[in-house]
Design a protein around this nucleic acid. Sequence first.
RNA 1: UCCGCGAUAGCUCAAUGGUAGAGCAUUCGGCUGUUAACCGAAGGGUUGCAAGUUCGAGUCUUGCUCGCGGAGCCA
Length: 432
Amino acid sequence: MKPEIYIKDLAKHTGQEVTLKGWLYNKRESGKVKFLILRDGTGYLQCIVFKGNVSPEVFEIAEKLHQEAAFEVTGLVKAEPRAVGGVELDATGVKLIGASEDYPITPKDHGVEFLIDNRHLWLRSKRQVAIMKIRHRIVKSIRDFFDEHGFTLFDPPIITPNASEGTSTLFQMEYFDLGKAYLTQSGQLYAEAGALALGKVYTFGPTFRAEKSKTRRHLTEFWMVEPEMAFYNLDDDMDLAEEFLEYIVKSVLKNNLAELEILERDITKLEKIERPFPRVSYDEAVQMLKDEGHEFKWGDDLGAADETIISSKYDKPVMVHRYPAEIKAFYMKRDPENEKLALAVDVLAPEGYGEIIGGSQREDDYDLLLSRIKEHKLPENFFSWYLDLRKYGSVPHSGFGLGLERTITWICGIDHLRETIPFPRMIYRNTP
RNA sequence: UCCGCGAUAGCUCAAUGGUAGAGCAUUCGGCUGUUAACCGAAGGGUUGCAAGUUCGAGUCUUGCUCGCGGAGCCA
């Protein structure tokens, strides 16, 4: 039987007798009174069990509840300033639903390795529940944003015959009699086909990178959202990116203050995320680094330390644009004002969270794209369909990719993105 | 792949080369307002693995395994 009422709605039922179902988050007891902290996924509620108010059998059941035992509790809802949340339940009945013996995660400190080993249980903790709720909100706001802006969801394939950019190491598999196939690292090339069919599309799904990255900013399986728009140039692309990020942050601020508080997030930092965002060209960024006294050679990619220096100058995301074409992907269009530059943009999150968006205007000229494919020694036969997009009604078009987990990490203000996805996949871990 | 750090009770951590300890969790007892409750007691150990130095190794040396952080790569 499903619960009739959840903790989040309890304040409306003050003075009424209700029955709730959930799990024991923690328990404190003092002789003849027990404080059971019930969690039900929507909130936390202190339930008081006085020995004098309940039958000996009920008191005995409460006595034997261990951490994370599932139970049902009936009682009177009371306003109570001494309770966290302002409401508590004066229990008259307690029923055990599922016992829990020797729950491994105690209310004391644990190490990361232990918690990750127990990820399936760690997800029940207050902090993880808060992060998952914010993840949900961000995903919803992403879908709402594109829906409200005339985009069509366009699902790219997960299994692809080749590397879309030809650089990253991909997860490989045998695909029946057709030889090797790979898990996608980006849906972008397919999204371009979608944009030329539907005008404005976005893809949203898991992507896979077999890079041996061992940092707090990397997962081997992560979620990416990639809008792609026909007739958008790089400036239009950046306009969209900043409006998009502002929308997401505002949505979390509007709906998830309780969760941000659990995470002890400094929300004044998030309240500053309003358009316009600073736009810095690669040339200007290089100059900034030199002004700071850092050695930097024009033509090199910005490293993590360089990004931190640049983003720390602002309290908003920074859009760094027009990178040297040599360090960027083959499909990016060159800047007509300087052939050495690609019409690319990276968005760096504030507070040192690093790159959360990478985007560009795409090369729309058939001959130039073909020569780039040849320069990069990519297998032409795999790209014939992609070249077709430049053969039949080619138009200027742009798009970007936003890393979902990195965005959640930044908005939540946490220090490792492994907590932002229910079951993280990392180089040395694929369980639980 | 490279650089750095680490591995002691179920968990988090202590222990000058000289008897392996605390808190939490568990079990038992006490407490009618606790907020990671508190107080008392008990059980709980092949100190990651292998070798070496030493009268004596958790501690020093070497190798290995596993993990963590960072770099590169990227979102």
